[in-house]
């Protein structure tokens, strides 16, 4: 073996970042079956029960506005949930393991880039997976329901929300992943994930909560509200949604805030 076979002039932080990203995407393709199952099961069940079973058995929800079907209300919410859950699956859960029992993270942080950049790479890799999740779930939401969704797609809004929402989810995943110990994962689901998904304006437009003002105010802290309202604005604007400015501002502020928190937590966990 030659001593210096590849004097690595390209061993730049950027190359290392790209290498880590490639690695995370390779894991997705290596585990594509599991990736699909994890991504699709919850949205499929949600859509199936609420928009197929309920109408079929004559039990159901009505859309708040006029003659829109509940499907139309639910589709943006289901996509938002899928993206959020992907942020947890793709970033938080692997990190909890890598910090906890496998100590694999020790290897990742030896790559020649700053530690904060390793954390940012996790956010980017998670966001890419969130985007893939959104694209996978969209057809389900369109095909499964007994009554179709009435989509009025606004492409500019869809592109912007479609790109921002996955970052919000994976930044949340990073922050949680650096905070939670392996034995606290079940607790994380009960205390953080479930409230977020149930109270994330996924089954109803946020504006309709004006009937319960305190809940309407409290759920403004929930990132999923802005994701769901964002997809609503992009896919089914006729249902009504939060002002676009508020959605965009939150979808920028949230990933930045959670990202800072997550990067700090990450540094704290790997450096001593």
């Amino acid at each position: 073996m030659s001593r210096r076979p590849v004097e690595a002039p390209r061993a730049t932080a950027l190359a290392a970042f790209a290498g880590l990203l490639l690695r995370d995407l390779r894991v997705v393709t290596n585990e594509r079956g599991r990736f699909l199952l994890r991504t699709l099961s919850q949205p499929l069940l949600l859509v199936f029960v609420f928009t197929y079973v309920f109408p079929k058995i004559g039990q159901g929800f009505r859309a708040p506005a006029g003659d829109e079907s509940f499907t139309t209300v639910l589709v943006p919410g289901v996509i938002a949930i899928a993206v959020l859950i992907k942020g947890i699956q793709a970033v938080a859960l692997p990190l909890v393991q890598e910090f906890g029992y496998t100590s694999e993270i020790e290897d990742r942080v030896m790559a020649p880039l700053p530690v904060w950049a390793v954390a940012v790479e996790k956010i980017v890799a998670g966001a890419v997976q969130g985007l893939i999740a959104a694209l996978l779930v969209f057809p389900i939401a369109a095909v499964v329901p007994a009554e179709p969704a009435a989509l009025q797609i606004s492409w500019p809004a869809l592109v912007v929300v479609g790109l921002l929402a996955p970052f919000a989810a994976s930044a949340l995943g990073l922050a949680l992943g650096t905070m939670v110990e392996p034995n606290q994962v079940p607790l994380m689901f009960s205390v953080v994930i479930l409230p977020i998904t149930f109270l994330g304006a996924t089954y109803y437009p946020w504006a309709r909560l004006d009937a319960i003002p305190w809940l309407q105010a409290v759920t403004l802290l929930n990132p999923l509200v802005y994701m769901a309202e964002g997809y609503r604005m992009a896919l089914t604007p006729q249902i009504g949604h939060m002002p676009g400015v508020a959605i965009y501002a939150a979808l920028v502020a949230f990933p930045v805030g959670m990202g800072v928190l997550g990067v700090r937590g990450f540094r704290r966990r790997v450096l001593s």
Binding site: T12, A16, L22, R23, A111
Partner: peptide, 13 residues
């Protein structure tokens, strides 16, 4: 792949 990706982290094509 462990070796492969490690090499990528260190800038190899």
């Amino acid at each position: 792949e462990n070796l492969l990706f490690h090499c990528r982290y260190f800038g190899m094509s």
